[in-house]
């Protein structure tokens, strides 16, 4: 494999986009939010993101966004990941290793099944938006 140029990258992107546009993905968007504070990074959040990308590629999913955020206030259970997928409750998972990241894609996103032992109930109180 040779070094890719920006023009080649753009051509590859256009090709992929055509393929994606042919599919019906409306209302099927998945969002994965990964905590990337000092605590998340120290616990391996970077590895989790890399594993999510590889697994999403493996299953040819096209409608997933990965957002990075700072510390979610759950430093004791890092890396923490918030998963929003259609047909599933918004869920925060803790201790998300590269392996668990794969499991989240296969079971939670594709299989619509919670991975109960890694579910954290809610963000820590000091980062919750005030509820009226």
């Amino acid at each position: 494999m040779a070094k890719m140029t920006l023009a080649q990258l753009k051509a590859l992107r256009d090709e992929t986009k055509k393929d994606i546009d042919r599919r019906d993905t409306e209302g099927k968007d998945v969002m994965i939010v990964v905590g990337m504070g000092t605590c998340g990074i120290a616990a391996g959040a970077k590895d989790a993101i890399s594993s999510f990308i590889d697994e999403i590629k493996e299953h040819d999913l096209t409608n997933v966004t990965i957002k990075q955020t700072g510390c979610m206030g759950l430093c004791h259970s890092e890396p923490t990941v918030d998963v929003k997928a259609p047909g599933m409750p918004d869920t925060i998972y803790g201790n998300v290793t590269a392996e668990l990241a794969k499991e989240i894609i296969v079971k939670h996103v594709i299989g619509k099944e919670l991975i109960s032992k890694h579910v954290l109930d809610r963000p820590a109180s000091d980062i919750m938006k005030e509820q009226n």
Binding site: R13, F52, I53, I56, V64, I66
Partner: peptide, 18 residues
């Protein structure tokens, strides 16, 4: 410019290859 939104995983996959 080449890829668009870099938080879209389809673009991240290409970014990784690049």
């Amino acid at each position: 410019d080449a890829l668009g939104d870099l938080s879209q995983v389809t673009n991240m996959i290409l970014l990784k290859e690049f």
